[in-house]
């Protein structure tokens, strides 16, 4: 009996190590351990043993059964694991094939720059104001202290309509319209489309500006410098150098051109900055008392500043665009990059 049991154990070991699939293992397991299996058959012989031997051999049978069971369990789970690995291996796909992409749309770069600038100024408490593009001479020029027949009008080549209105040459008339209906204090920016009869690589007959205006008690030129420095740092990066230099606009005094250190060469001098290391991006100044006079503000009581910038200019600097006309060609190969 002991020999038979030992024999069985031996056979089971060999069968497990020879088995090549889950099925053969399962079959062998039933053959050894099943209800009609070989171990059960052997156990029927227990009855013929003496009362002394029976518990000893019985114990032996149990321990051999446990051993064989463990053997099969381990082998089966190893086999399952191997099968899974091999199945997953066979399911491999080419992950380098491009993804199935939905169409990606885009906002025009001009729209994006306007949004970005507006967002920065919203942080400074500036609200957005708007006005008409087809304007009266009074709002576009006279109220902004461009008297008729003044050479300052030559600074802006104007489109006129046949019924003697004009296409606004800057967003500054929005200043006038806002001041006429609002009392100080006020902080506004006015993004919009403007027009000048001029067309080449750096001029487009239609382009975009953002006008800013702040009026309050005791606003100074130093405040203007502060706001514009923080603005340019937020737009172009923390360390961007800013320079204000004297200039002239009829509706501000003192007036300034605002330059930033060239973002292309870092101030060393290159073609874009004409070797000066500086890029002009803004015009600004303290609101001229003559303007207050036109909108019935008391110039002794309040003070303020105004500024204006070309959106195309900023977009060109931000994205390294050389020719402004590219912005209005509506070529999707260009637009899809935004």
């Amino acid at each position: 009996m002991r020999e038979q049991l030992e024999q069985l154990r031996h056979e089971a070991l060999k069968t497990v190590s020879d088995a090549s699939s889950e099925e053969t293992l399962q079959e062998a397991r039933i053959r050894f351990l099943g209800r009609k299996g070989e171990l059960t058959a052997l156990m029927k012989g227990l009855g013929g043993l003496s009362a002394d031997e029976r518990p000893v051999v019985g114990q032996l049978v149990n321990s051999i059964r446990d051993e064989i069971e463990n053997l099969f369990e381990t082998a089966l789970s190893a086999e399952r694991e191997r099968a899974t690995v091999s199945r997953l291996q066979s399911e491999r796909i080419d992950i380098t094939l491009p993804g199935r992409r939905a169409l990606r749309g885009s906002k025009h770069p001009i729209t994006q720059v306007i949004a970005e600038v507006s967002e920065i100024f919203a942080g400074f408490g500036f609200s957005v104001a708007e006005g008409p593009e087809i304007e009266h001479d009074w709002y576009n020029f006279e109220a902004l202290n461009f008297p008729p027949e003044h050479p300052a009008r030559d600074m802006q080549d104007t489109f006129f309509t046949e019924n003697s209105l004009l296409l606004r040459t800057h967003t500054s008339p929005v200043q006038i319209r806002t001041m006429l209906k609002t009392k100080p204090p006020l902080r506004i920016i006015a993004p919009g489309t403007v027009y000048r009869c001029d067309s080449d690589a750096t001029h487009s007959p239609m382009f975009h500006q953002i006008e800013g205006l702040m009026i309050d008690k005791d606003v100074s030129f130093a405040d203007l410098k502060g706001i514009l420095t923080i603005f340019t740092n937020q737009l172009f990066g923390q360390k961007t150098g800013v320079r204000l230099r004297p200039s002239f606009f009829p509706f501000t005094e003192p007036s300034a051109e605002v330059d930033i250190a060239c973002v292309i060469c870092g101030g060393k001098g290159c073609r874009v900055c004409k070797q000066t290391g500086w890029l002009e991006i803004l015009g600004a100044g303290m609101v001229d008392p003559e303007v207050y006079h036109h909108v019935n503000y008391d110039a002794e009581d309040i003070s303020g500043f105004a500024f204006g910038m070309g959106i195309e200019r900023i977009a060109m600097l931000k994205y390294g665009i050389r020719d402004m006309r590219l912005l209005f060609e509506n070529d999707v190969r260009f637009l899809r990059q935004f």
Partner: peptide, 18 residues
Amino acid sequence: YDNIPASMPIARVISDRP
């Protein structure tokens, strides 16, 4: 202009919501 400091104006306005 370089000798004019940069300062921040005191806010007495809050911006309107768009």
